[in-house]
């Protein structure tokens, strides 16, 4: 166990934003949180990060937990002149050589000397995640990382994330609406609507009545279709 939320509730303006949430994140987990707007997804992440303490329940952390976080809506103000390299090094105890190695690994060498404000949304997310990997965290928390990306940006980002997950001893907890993009990698999906409606493997979750209730038949069908396609390809490849 890396971190555990035990029966946590959060009340804001007399509204229960999170209601009796139980969540355990273990080493090598890849959990995707889905949910409509205002479902408390970001709040749940912020409770786990201890930005806020829950009104009820508690957060239990393992001693060796090292968490890193990339927030929702990361935009860089044009008035701040800073290169990607300087941003990665900011407040970190790291040498330029080490960053050069990591940037080769993640294929971002070309954008290292660019101004942060000149990067595309996708490039900015990659820099942000590279920065967050500097301290070798064992849990990566991402809040809607692809929100400002176009479809090709999203694809390239999730490929990048897959690579990180495959090559590093890391767990990932992510809020994302792009279930179809992560369905092959994510191990567990949690549907949140102030409380946990349903959770499970991506293949089975789309058949859960609670999931269908929350997102409607169309979305559920679309998701199970993606899964079906994926299986089909997989079998196809095997038979060759």
């Amino acid at each position: 166990m890396l971190i555990k939320a035990e029966n946590i509730s959060v009340v804001r303006n007399n509204k229960e934003i999170l209601k009796n949430i139980d969540l355990t994140i273990n080493p090598r987990d890849f959990i995707t949180i889905l949910g409509p707007n205002g479902a408390g997804k970001s709040m749940l992440l912020k409770c786990l990060l201890e930005f806020f303490s829950p009104d009820k329940g508690k957060i239990i952390k393992s001693d060796d937990l090292k968490v890193s976080y990339t927030p929702q809506d990361f935009v860089i103000d044009k008035s701040i002149p800073i290169t990607s390299m300087d941003f990665i090094m900011l407040n970190k105890n790291i040498k330029k050589d080490e960053i050069n190695n990591i940037s080769k690994e993640f294929n971002i060498s070309e954008i290292l000397n660019k101004q942060l404000s000149h990067l595309s949304g996708g490039e900015l997310q990659k820099i942000l995640i590279t920065r967050s990997l500097i301290d070798n965290p064992n849990l990566l928390i991402l809040d809607e990382p692809t929100q400002n990306l176009d479809v090709s940006g999203q694809l390239s980002f999730y490929k990048f994330l897959d690579k990180i997950y495959a090559e590093r001893e890391i767990s990932i907890l992510m809020v994302s609406h792009d279930l179809h993009m992560v369905i092959s990698t994510t191990k567990k999906v949690i549907c949140l609507s102030n409380h946990i409606c349903c959770s499970g493997e991506p293949s089975s979750i789309t058949k859960d009545p609670e999931f269908i209730n929350l997102f409607g038949h169309d979305f559920a069908d679309m998701m199970s279709l993606y899964k079906h396609d994926l299986k089909h390809n997989h079998e196809g490849r095997e038979s060759v």
């Binding site: 990060l49 930005f51 860089i76 701040i80 800073i82 900011l90 928390i141």
Partner: peptide, 19 residues
Amino acid sequence: WEKLVLMTINESVAKAENI
């Protein structure tokens, strides 16, 4: 300096790094 620059760029990132 470095802490202030980081939290000026993004406060949540700074918070998550225990600043």
